[in-house]
Amino acid sequence: MKKRFVLFMSLFLVLSLALMGCAPKAPAASKTEGSAEDEFKFERKIELVCPWGAGGGADSTLRAFASALEKEIGVPVVVNNVEGGGGVKGVEYSAKQPADGYTYMLGTQSLLLVNMQKLSSVDIYKEFIPVTKLVHDTNVIVASSKAPYTNFDELVEYIKANPGKVKCGVMTITGVDAFTVRETFEKAGVDVPLVAFNNGAELNAAIIGGHVDLATVGPAEVKGLVDSGDMRPIIVASEKRLPMIPDVEATGEKGIESYLGPMRGIFAKQGTPEAAIKAFEAAAAKAHASAEFQEWMKTVALDQRAGYANAADFQAIWTEQNETLTELFNKYNK
């Protein structure tokens, strides 16, 4: 009897354990969006590609941003100038890098124009994602201080008296700077041929040396040369004058609707992890708002137009710019 009882209890215990093993388990805590497990942590240096050479507005903007970003993102941030082909080499280099969240590219609307001409094997509009807009610069048409004209009206009269003689240097024949020249002088009733240069330093030297008559530049790029008396600003492509050069007329006050200026922003290759893009975007917002970057923008007159935009807003702006420039491209390339 005692043996039967022990056997019964043993069987009961085995059956109970088996039933417990089949019982449904409590659901694991679900991972909520934005939890620590979802956050992207940068663990090595970040490369920012500049598709243009040193000495220009794109390069100076990217270097100022990289310095502020490094303080916010927690890893080294390096700038790599890959110049050539009006930005094409930099784009194609960026497209070949891994989409792992550690390589980003500076871009302006000039790259959209490169795309329209099919000068690159990379479809820039489709293969890169807008991440954050940094600045909206203003184009200024400048001349050598030795030029026989001191303002826009005198320049226009000189061009009319010397057709075909005055040429303007630009970074890209079909870039935003070139469209600024075309719009401005077309509406003034004169024609100015364009000459392309590889980088800002080369263009500045050509102006000072008298090898080209005019140049389209950002005010910060030539402030030192203007202050030293080597260059003379002629007109600002803006609705109003710039505080940096208050004596220089703006196209708006001359009744000339020519306001194009380079928007500089950061792009990521398609396929880059969304978490990495969000982490970069968050750090970029803090870097842009930092006292260091804000003071730099003020110093170089980049605080005159709304600069910063997050990824969603930048995508909308980028789409609008693509449509606007497509119209201009078709107009000037019939």
Score class of each variant (00 low, 15 high):
residue 251 T to F: 11
residue 292 E to C: 11
residue 282 A to P: 00
residue 228 S to Y: 13
residue 293 F to A: 00
residue 247 D to P: 15
residue 248 V to C: 09
residue 289 A to V: 08
residue 246 P to Y: 12
residue 279 A to R: 02
residue 236 V to Y: 00
residue 238 S to P: 06
residue 201 A to T: 10
residue 238 S to I: 09
residue 207 I to W: 01
residue 252 G to R: 00
residue 249 E to H: 13
residue 213 D to I: 14
residue 197 F to L: 02
residue 198 N to F: 12
residue 219 P to K: 01
residue 227 D to R: 08
residue 235 I to A: 02
residue 293 F to Y: 00
residue 210 G to H: 06
residue 246 P to D: 11
residue 278 K to W: 04
residue 244 M to F: 03
residue 299 T to D: 10
residue 278 K to L: 00
residue 190 V to M: 07
residue 281 E to R: 06
residue 212 V to Y: 09
residue 200 G to H: 05
residue 206 A to V: 13
residue 250 A to P: 12
residue 224 G to Q: 06
residue 224 G to H: 07
residue 279 A to G: 01
residue 187 K to H: 15
residue 214 L to F: 08
residue 187 K to D: 14
residue 268 A to V: 06
residue 249 E to Y: 13
residue 280 F to E: 02
residue 227 D to F: 07
residue 195 V to F: 15
residue 243 P to D: 07
residue 192 V to H: 03
residue 220 A to C: 04
residue 192 V to C: 03
residue 242 L to V: 05
residue 266 I to K: 03
residue 293 F to Q: 01
residue 228 S to F: 12
residue 239 E to N: 07
residue 278 K to Q: 08
residue 249 E to P: 15
residue 251 T to P: 10
residue 264 R to I: 06
residue 237 A to C: 04
residue 234 I to S: 04
residue 217 V to F: 08
residue 276 A to P: 05
residue 287 A to E: 07
residue 195 V to A: 14
residue 188 A to S: 12
residue 283 A to F: 10
residue 225 L to K: 07
residue 233 P to S: 00
residue 196 A to H: 11
residue 240 K to Q: 09
residue 238 S to C: 11
residue 255 G to W: 11
residue 202 E to A: 10
residue 195 V to M: 15
residue 220 A to P: 04
residue 203 L to S: 02
residue 186 E to L: 14
residue 274 E to D: 09
residue 240 K to V: 10
residue 286 K to Y: 01
residue 196 A to P: 14
residue 239 E to W: 02
residue 238 S to H: 13
residue 224 G to P: 14
residue 293 F to P: 03
residue 265 G to R: 08
residue 229 G to L: 02
residue 252 G to A: 06
residue 273 P to H: 02
residue 280 F to R: 00
residue 234 I to E: 06
residue 259 Y to I: 07
residue 289 A to M: 09
residue 203 L to Q: 00
residue 237 A to P: 05
residue 300 V to E: 06
residue 271 G to R: 05
residue 281 E to S: 04
residue 299 T to G: 09
residue 292 E to M: 10
residue 270 Q to N: 05
residue 297 M to P: 15
residue 191 D to R: 14
residue 258 S to H: 01
residue 291 A to R: 09
residue 191 D to W: 15
residue 297 M to H: 08
residue 294 Q to L: 10
residue 185 F to H: 08
residue 248 V to Y: 07
residue 265 G to P: 15
residue 264 R to W: 00
residue 228 S to E: 13
residue 300 V to Q: 03
residue 242 L to N: 06
residue 291 A to H: 12
residue 187 K to Q: 15
residue 217 V to Y: 03
residue 293 F to L: 02
residue 251 T to M: 14
residue 284 A to R: 00
residue 274 E to T: 08
residue 301 A to D: 14
residue 245 I to N: 09
residue 245 I to G: 10
residue 281 E to T: 11
residue 206 A to D: 12
residue 193 P to Y: 04
residue 225 L to D: 09
residue 252 G to I: 09
residue 230 D to K: 15
residue 233 P to R: 00
residue 233 P to I: 05
residue 282 A to F: 07
residue 273 P to K: 00
residue 282 A to C: 03
residue 212 V to T: 15
residue 251 T to D: 13
residue 214 L to G: 06
residue 282 A to T: 13
residue 279 A to Q: 03
residue 236 V to Q: 04
residue 198 N to H: 14
residue 235 I to D: 08
residue 210 G to I: 08
residue 273 P to Y: 04
residue 196 A to G: 12
residue 216 T to E: 09
residue 270 Q to R: 01
residue 299 T to E: 08
residue 205 A to P: 05
residue 239 E to R: 09
